[in-house]
Design a protein around this nucleic acid. Structure first.
Lengths: 208, 208, 208, 208
DNA sequence: TATGAATGAGAGTTCATTCAT
DNA sequence: AATGAATGAACTCTCATTCAT
C-alpha cells in the first residue's frame, strides 16, 4: 500500500538519523552533537533532512532518548523475565545494566548524555526527572517489595535505589577511563556490594 | 594609597569572573555557560574582559575547576582533620561531601559540569580522568588502609571507591529533583549503607 | 519554469562571491579582504552567505586563485596557440602576460596577492610554491626545449625562468606606480631584453 | 649625563622591538605581525610597550623599514665602494644584493613584506613607491651613466632597472622555495644574464 | 621610562531553523 | 518525501589603542 510504503520510509529515515545522533552523542557528547555533525555521520547531504523529519532539536533528542531507552529496556526485560526472588532480581538488575555497558555502550552513553544535558528554555533539566522516575522508581518498587517480604533489611528505599542507579553510572565512568576493565567482574563486585548493603540484620533471613 | 574604583587587580578580576562562571555553570549547565552570560552575571561590560584575563575558554574552565575544587577540598580537610579511625573516616567523608551539596551547591555542581562536559579538540573528556584520580584515588587509599587494618571486609577497592564517589553524585541528583530533601538524613543513610557494605564478614571486628 | 529572483544556483552564487573577492583583493590587498568587505562589494546581505557557500576563508581564497588563474591561463593559451618557434614563444609569453596586466589587472593582482600572502596555520606560504611550479615550470620546459634546439644560448634554465616570471611582476609594479605607462612598449622592451639574454653565443643561430 | 642615558635606553628599547618585528615579519609575514606576536618574540610583557615607544603601527613599520634598509644599504655601500666601471658595478650590485639574501635574509624579507603590504587608510600602498624610487632610481642612474659612457647598449633604462630589481626578488623567492639553492651560483647566473642583456650591439665595446 | 587594566570594533565560524519549491 | 538556498543570532577570539598612574 502506497501510504504504508511512505510511512515505512519515513520511519526508516528517522531511525537512520536517530542512530547517527546516538553515535555522535556517545562519541563527542551532547554539547557537540550539532545537526551538522549528525548528518555527516548519517551520510546525509544537509541538515535540512533533520529539520524535515523532526520538529526541532528537542524532538530529535527526545526521540533519541526514547529509542535508546527502548533498546535498553527490552534487553533488561529479557534478562529479568522469570526471576521472582527479590535478591536475585537485584543482582540481575545490576549485572544486566553493567552488561549493557558492554553490549550497548553507545545507547547507554547517549541516554546519560541527553538526560544530563538537555534543558528547556529556562535552563532547567528537561528529561532528568523523568529518567530518574523510570529507573529509580523501578528499583524502588523492587526494594519495597523485598522489604515487605523480609528478604531485605531496613534502609531508606529512595536512597538505596538512587545509589544503585548511580553505581551503574560509576561502572560506565570506569569503563571510559579504563576501557579494558572486566565489566563482568565489576558487575559481580557491585552486586555483592549491594547484596551486603541490603541484607537483613538477622542474617538467617538472607544467607547470600 | 588611593583606592581605584574602576581598575581592580588582576587577581580580583579573575576571581570575579570565576565566581560568575561558577554561578552560571551551576544554574544553566556547562553548555550554556557562554562568555556573554558570564559577563552579564559578573556585571562586566563586555566579553572582552574575559578574553583579556584568560587565554581562552579552556583556561577559564580550568580555573573554575581549580577554584571550586580548592574551596571544596579545604572544607573536606577541615572536617576530616583528626579522624584516624577508618570507619569513621568513611562516614565522615560521605557526610562531609553531602553536606557540601547543601553549603556549596554551586561549587559542587560546577565541578561536576566542567569535569563531565569539558572536552579537548578531539571530543575526548579533558578533566574527567584527572578528577576521578583525585576523588576516587583518595578513597582508594583510605579503603586499602582500612582493609589492611582489618576494619573493612574483603571487596574490590576500586569498585567500592568509585561507587562511593558516585553515591555522592546521586545525592546531588536527588537534591536537584527534590530540593527539599533532608540531606543530613540522606547522608546518614548513605553512610550506613556503605558501612554495611564494607563491614568485615566476622561482625566482631566492626560492630557498627 | 519560474525564474527565482532571490535564490540563484550554487555555482552562480559562488562565482558572484569569487568575483567580488577578486575585486576587493585587487583594490585593498589580501590583508584587507575581509568577508565583510567582500559581501559589501558583492551586494549581499551578510557574511553568512560566504560561510554557507565556502567551507572557510582558505577555501574561498583557493577558489579565487583557481578562478583567476583559469581566466588568465585561457587567455594565454589562446594567444600562444600555433606558435612553434621557441624564440617567438618567449616573446609571446612576455607580451601576453604584460598585456593581461592591461586587460585583466584585477585577476593578475589577485593571483599575486593570494599567492604571496596566503599562509597555513604555521605561517608558511600556502600557494606560492604551487604557483611557482605552474608558472616557472612552464617557462623552464620552453627554455629547455629551445636550448636543445640550439635557438637559445647557454644559461641556467631555472634562473632564467624565474627571472622572466619576476619581470612580469615588475611590469605590474610599474603599472601600479605609474598607471599611464604604455604597457605595450614595456612588453616590447622586456621581450627584447630576454631575447638578448637568451641569444646563442654564435649570433648566426638566432639573428633576432 | 642623565638625559643621554635615558635617550640611549629609549633607543635600545626601540631597537629591541624593531628587531623582534623584523623577525616576526620575516617568519610569518606582514599580515601576521601583530603587536602581540612581536612582544612575545621580544620577550616583553605587554603590547603596551610598543604603543609607548611608537606612535602606532604605521610608525613601527616605518621604523622597521628604515632600520632594515639602513643595514642593507650600509652593506651595499661597503661592497660597491671603489668600483667605478659600470659593467662591474652592475655585476657587483646583483651579486651583493643576492649575497644579502644569504647574510641578512630577515632584513631583506622584512623590507619586501612591509613595502608590499603596508597601506594607508584608503588601501593604497604606502611605502612601495618610495622603495621603488630608492632601489630602481639608483639602478637607473647607473645604467644611464653606463649608456652615456657607451659600455651599455640601447635599452629602456626604467624597464631594465625595474627588471634587475625584480630579479633579486626572484632569487629571494627561489631561496624560500628551495632553501639549499647555491645563491652564489644564482647571483653569477643573474649577473651574466644582465650583462648579456645590457651589452652594446657592437660587441667590441663590451666584450664581457 | 614604564606599567596594569581596560576597551570597541571587527574577525571568521557555527548554530538550528525557515523559505520556497 | 525531499531539496537547495538562505538566514539572524550567537559564538570565541584577536586587533591596535587608550586610560590612569
Amino acid at each position: 500500500m502506497q501510504v504504508n510504503q511512505r510511512t515505512v520510509t519515513e520511519a526508516a529515515r528517522r531511525a537512520q538519523i536517530i542512530d547517527a545522533a546516538i553515535e555522535v552523542i556517545a562519541d563527542l557528547g551532547y554539547g557537540q552533537a550539532s545537526f551538522a555533525r549528525i548528518v555527516e555521520r548519517a551520510g546525509l547531504s544537509s541538515t535540512r533532512m533533520i529539520s524535515y523529519h523532526f520538529q526541532g532539536k528537542d524532538e530529535l533528542m527526545w526521540a533519541v532518548l526514547l529509542a535508546a531507552m527502548g533498546v535498553v529496556d527490552e534487553r533488561m526485560d529479557e534478562r529479568l523475565a522469570g526471576i521472582t526472588d527479590r535478591v536475585e532480581m537485584l543482582r540481575g538488575y545490576i549485572e544486566s545494566q553493567v552488561d549493557l555497558l558492554r553490549t550497548h555502550p553507545e545507547h547507554m552513553r547517549a541516554i546519560t548524555e541527553v538526560a544530563r544535558n538537555a534543558r528547556d528554555e529556562n535552563g532547567a533539566p528537561q528529561y532528568a526527572p523523568l529518567l530518574r522516575d523510570l529507573r529509580v522508581g523501578r528499583l524502588e518498587r523492587q526494594l519495597a517489595q523485598g522489604q515487605r517480604e523480609g528478604v531485605f533489611g531496613e534502609f531508606d528505599i529512595a536512597v538505596m535505589a538512587q545509589t544503585i542507579s548511580q553505581a551503574v553510572d560509576g561502572a560506565a565512568a570506569r569503563r571510559e577511563t579504563d576501557p579494558d576493565v572486566d565489566l563482568a567482574d565489576y558487575a559481580r563486585e557491585l552486586a555483592d556490594l549491594f547484596t551486603r548493603a541490603t541484607r537483613p540484620t538477622d542474617p538467617a533471613r538472607n544467607p547470600n
